[in-house]
Amino acid sequence: MTLYLVDGAHRATEAPDRPVLDIRGLTKVYGQGEATVHALRGVSLSIAAGDYVAIMGSSGSGKSTLMNILGCLDVPSAGTYRLDGVDVSRLDDARLALVRNRRIGFVFQSFNLIPRTSAVANVELPLAYAGVKPAERRRRALAALDMVGLAGRADHEPNQLSGGQQQRVAVARALVTEPALILADEPTGNLDSRSTEEVLAILDQLHAAGRTIVMITHETDVAARARRLVTLFDGRITTDVRQGGAR
């Protein structure tokens, strides 16, 4: 295990090509006056294509805030965020929707599937917003479900699936658009150990297939699967280490 100190000069990127994700001096402030909370106090991070990064930190360290900003669900108070070379902190609502749709696949802790809607329809949703034709959409959604091992459950609604299965549907939904970046916000936080293993195995597969993955977790054994471990404390990055991964 090698350890890098983050001071801007030595960043833990070994890939020579352009980074998928590049943030500089990101801050996020909630509230005003006495109730002001500095969730992020200047975070700089660069992630290369094909990397598998775990972000750890205690609760209140700002990791969820960072993740929401990375997923374009929230906007930073200051700093720049370049995704695939595009500065997304200056985009309007319609362009942000396009970025979320085309470049990012988001996996939530609480699954966030649309209720009373079949698994395959849930997976199709981002493709529908991308304007893919229904037949092509169905084919790709079924392929994605097959990849997470749920081809047989395509017509089940979320409440007919177990937590692990729901999360695998959510992963299928995140990867169906073939995004540059897959973001997973505590994807195993609500799962038992067997389901956790299933979901992590899928993420390993995706990493092996060359996808860029950023995952938040507070479980060290989950974080150990990643190739790079970033630790946040009190809104700042404290450690950034490259590790071997669990494979």
């Binding site: 669900l73 319609a94 929707a97 396009l98 979320r100 599937l113 649309i114 981002p126 917003y129 939904r173």
Partner: peptide, 9 residues
């Protein structure tokens, strides 16, 4: 959820 998946307003 729909917005997070990239649905325009």
């Amino acid at each position: 959820i729909r917005k997070a998946l990239g649905a325009p307003r």
